[in-house]
């Protein structure tokens, strides 16, 4: 029963990672940009939503404000800074977007302080649902899973079935050729980036009531998101989905069960310390193993 609950927790965490990873992997695949500041957009979504939710008391307003803020700030940053980085090498991109993280984190501290912000759950999702007899599970977390699956489906349809999706896929495999064929690739860049920012904002809004809304929340999840897209294969939304679920499961399940298993071998406090350490390392071990086995990830988008 505990196992079922933890598997759902893992799925929920994986879905959150997917929302971030989907945008990041497309930006990565099409523009060739390593955007460390993607986690900042997630943080912006969470802060804006918590602030709006506390001011108005309406979750819908919070959702719209959070996603809107992340998308607007994301597109503004793309236009002012990131656009100039597409043609640069990865090192410049890493350092410049690292500078953006410093700025956004400190700006959030100045606006909202260092204390975590409280984000309220919508009352109609505050209860829990009995999925299996005897296993109640919070409705809000189930809603996150449902929203994430819907987004995954919508993204799949967008990328696989629409004209825009066709251009995105084309940009993924050869952006110069797409430009040469007369497509306004700059517009596609902005749209894709805005879409990624919107999804990051959505993840931030939904994360608010579950995790704490505070400065630095973006980086914790950002590094895991990078692990996800490296495992899944850069540029592949399908890879991001599978990678995100894999990482979410591995992280959640090792955290939940490893200390308990180690207690059979070690004393309680040692088992806790070692178990926590190893479970924090588990996803990175997974990534290293995948990269050594398949250096381009599980589902490389091209080639």
């Amino acid at each position: 029963m505990l196992l079922a609950e933890q598997i759902l927790n893992g799925a929920q965490f994986g879905i959150m990672l997917f929302l971030l990873a989907a945008g990041l992997t497309l930006v990565f695949g099409i523009m060739g940009l390593i955007n460390l500041a993607h986690g900042s957009l997630y943080m912006i979504g969470a802060f804006a939503a918590a602030w709006a939710g506390n001011a108005t008391g309406s979750f819908l307003t919070a959702l719209l404000v959070g996603m809107g803020a992340a998308a607007a700030i994301g597109m503004a940053v793309e236009a002012v800074v990131l656009r100039r980085l597409y043609a640069r090498d990865h090192l410049d991109q890493v350092v410049a977007t690292f500078g953006l993280i410093l700025f956004f984190n400190e700006a959030a501290t100045m606006l909202f302080g260092r204390q975590p912000l409280f984000a309220r759950m919508p009352p109609w999702l505050a209860g829990s649902v009995e999925l299996l007899p005897g296993v109640p599970y919070p409705a809000y977390r189930l809603a996150i899973i449902a929203v994430g699956l819907l987004v995954a489906l919508a993204l799949y349809l967008l990328v696989a079935r629409t004209r825009l999706g066709m251009l995105i896929r084309a940009g993924n495999s050869d952006r110069e050729m797409v430009r040469a064929l007369g497509v306004d690739i700059g517009l596609i860049y902005t749209l894709v980036f805005g879409l990624g920012a919107l999804l990051a904002g959505l993840a931030g809004v939904m994360a608010g009531p579950v995790f704490s809304v505070q400065v630095g929340m973006g980086e914790q999840v950002l590094i895991l998101t990078f692990v996800v897209i490296i495992i899944g294969g850069i540029g592949s939304v399908r890879g991001a989905f599978i990678g995100a679920l894999l990482v979410g499961m591995v992280d959640t399940l090792t955290r939940a069960f490893l200390p308990g298993l180690l207690k059979a071998l070690l004393s309680t406090s040692e088992a806790d310390a070692v178990g926590n350490g190893v479970s924090s390392m588990a996803v990175y071990l997974l990534m290293a193993a995948v990269l050594l086995w398949r250096p381009r990830g599980l589902f490389p988008a091209h080639g």
Binding site: F28, I34, H90, V94, I223, F226, V227, I230, I234, A273, V274, N276, G277, V278, S280, M281, Y284, L285, M287, A288, L291, P295, R296
Partner: peptide, 21 residues
Amino acid sequence: VHFIMITLAFAQMLFFLAVSL
């Protein structure tokens, strides 16, 4: 990119190892 990220991943492992000491 893969090299950037895998070096980051190994560094994170050692970071969490230090935290667990």
